[in-house]
Simulated scan of single mutants.
Amino acid sequence: MKIAPIFLSWFLLFISGSCSSDLDFDQANDIELRPVVIGNLASFDVAAKQFVNNGIEQTVSIDTPELGVFNDTFFKKNLIQTDLFFEVDNTINRAFELQLFFLDDANAPVTSIRMDIPAYIGSSNIVTKTVVYQGANLDALKQSKKIAFVITLLSGPPLNASSVGNLKLRSNLTAFFDIK
């Protein structure tokens, strides 16, 4: 019976002497966060008849609002990669060339993207493209203030004011950050 109190005393002494170490609060300075943010970039929906003015086919230009995201200092400093995703759905019986121009403060192009859109022939006609920006390409993109879209008709059956179909674009931006 005397063994139990001695054993209990040794056991309590053993577990009360547990390991501990000094806390290093300077480790908070070494925290590195790598968040990923996805957001809408731009979209449009152009009807076939918008490519015709007074019976003459024309190129269509679309300006989007400013890209305020690239004005943010935090964004510019911590952004390490941007993936731009574009999806174009063409239900017009004409092929198109779509050019996207990323413009600076003076409306000068800093970078551009080209997409060839085939004519609609009765089945799904969705074209997608992903463009990745890193390093020097990303630095150029960060100078962008807005996007201009230029849609050029390629050869094919003539369009008129009663032509049917639409050219629709949707796009998004995936931003990768490294916050130290």
Rank of each mutant, 00 (worst) to 15 (best):
N172H: 12
L41S: 03
S171I: 00
Q134V: 12
G156L: 06
F11V: 09
I62S: 10
G68H: 02
L79N: 02
D24I: 10
D63T: 14
M1F: 15
V46F: 04
V132K: 03
T128F: 02
S18W: 11
P158D: 09
A95V: 03
I179S: 06
M115T: 07
N71P: 00
L167V: 08
S163C: 04
A136C: 00
I38V: 14
D105A: 15
F75P: 08
S9V: 07
V37K: 05
E97N: 10
E57F: 11
L169M: 07
G135M: 09
F85A: 10
A136H: 02
I92D: 08
I113A: 09
S144V: 01
F7R: 11
N125E: 07
I151L: 15
K146E: 02
V37D: 03
I56A: 12
L159E: 01
P65K: 14
N166V: 12
D26S: 15
L13V: 07
G165T: 13
N54P: 04
A106D: 06
V69N: 11
E97R: 02
G156Y: 11
T128D: 14
T59E: 09
K129H: 02
A4M: 11
V36S: 04
N125C: 13
G135E: 12
D63S: 15
Q81H: 12
E87W: 01
V36R: 05
Q99T: 03
I56H: 05
A119W: 00
D105T: 14
N125D: 10
S144M: 00
G122Y: 06
A106K: 07
P5L: 14
L153H: 02
S18C: 11
V37W: 05
K76M: 01
I126Y: 02
T130C: 05
